[in-house]
Amino acid sequence: MCTMICERAEMEGSAKGRDGWFPLEMANVSYDHPFNAPWEYGLNIDFVNQSQGVGSRVAVELSPQSAKRLAETIMEALKRGEADPQIKVSVL
C-alpha cells in the first residue's frame, strides 16, 4: 500500500501451500514492501485462491533483477516447449 503498484492476472494451474496443493485462481504481482526479503521494496508474487481463504497463498519476494531473470527464464522455457511439435498441453 505504500506504492500501490499491483497487477493481477487470472491463473489456471496448481500451487502448493501450507496445507498442500490447491487450484490456482489468481497471481497478484506487486512492487512494494516485502514481508520477509531484506530490502525496502521488492517484486512480490502471490499465487492465491481467494475463494479458499487468504491462507491459500504461495508467496515469493524477489529483487527486481531476480524478477527479470525469472520472467526471461519463463519466456525461454515456454518458447522451447511451444516449439516442440511432440509436446501438447492438454488436460489428462
Binding site: M1, C6, N28, V54
Partner: peptide, 19 residues
Amino acid sequence: EAHGAPEDVAAAVRADGGV
C-alpha cells in the same frame, strides 16, 4: 477484508488496492 495470518490478510488487502 479477511481474517487469517496477518501477512496473508495484508497480501489480500495489497492486491485489492489497499483500504
